[in-house]
């Protein structure tokens, strides 16, 4: 009977060990949608103000592709501000992250205009575009939908577009999709996990 306290203590210790072990082994739960069997991200070349840019230039980093346009008043600034916030949260680790803003409005967004625009969110962000066919081809391989539609006389045409961002891992695989509006904290946590 004297042994009972010892048995209890040992059992408790074992259970605690199993519990903590299981917790440590439990995989990180992403806020974005993880792609279970990631494929190599399709490569492309579009123009930035400082020359051609391809996702493969950033192999070894985590690359975030976001498609939008500078006339966009709501979704694009919100997402770029969230991504810039995530960069600040990541601190030094942010140097291992490259955000690329792809314009789906080649008629109005020049590489120079894009550089100014994205640079005011974070000087490390890159903005790229190409001619209509080039942009359409890039959007298609990434499953990005966009479509011009008439706005009002004042707004000019507007563009409906996929509001999620695509994340390419260090090995160049399309790994994660960040839905619109998840906020800088969750984006930073997901990127941090991919940087491990």
């Amino acid at each position: 009977m004297k042994r009972l306290p010892i048995i209890l203590a040992v059992t408790t210790a074992l259970l605690a060990g199993v519990w903590f072990g299981a917790r440590a082994l439990r995989p990180y739960s992403f806020h974005g949608t993880i792609i279970q069997s990631p494929e190599p991200a399709p490569d492309f070349t579009l123009q930035s103000a400082s020359g051609p840019v391809s996702p493969s230039d950033f192999r070894g980093k985590v690359t975030v592709l976001f498609f939008g346009y500078t006339f966009c008043p709501d979704v694009c600034p919100t997402t770029l501000a969230d991504l810039a916030g995530a960069m600040r949260i990541l601190g030094d680790e942010a140097d291992e992250v490259q955000v690329v803003f792809v314009s789906v409005d080649p008629d109005r967004d020049t590489p120079e205009r894009l550089a100014e625009y994205v640079g005011s969110f974070d000087p490390r962000f890159v903005g790229v575009t190409g001619n209509e066919d080039e942009v359409a081809a890039v959007a298609a391989v990434y499953g990005i939908f966009y479509e011009k539609h008439e706005g009002t006389p004042a707004s000019g045409y507007l563009i409906d577009h996929t509001a999620s961002a695509m994340v390419i891992d260090r090995e160049g695989r399309l790994k994660l999709v960040l839905p619109f509006g998840i906020g800088p904290q969750d984006i930073a946590a997901d990127l941090h996990e991919l940087l491990k």
């Binding site: 008043p73 709501d74 499953g143 939908f145 507007l158 409906d160 577009h161 509001a163 999620s164 619109f180």
Partner: peptide, 16 residues
């Protein structure tokens, strides 16, 4: 102008 965003299929957002 007064605008609203709306979500279409597949994470596509439109504005009107």
């Amino acid at each position: 102008e007064l605008h609203e965003m709306y979500m279409k299929d597949g994470g596509v957002m439109g504005m009107r």
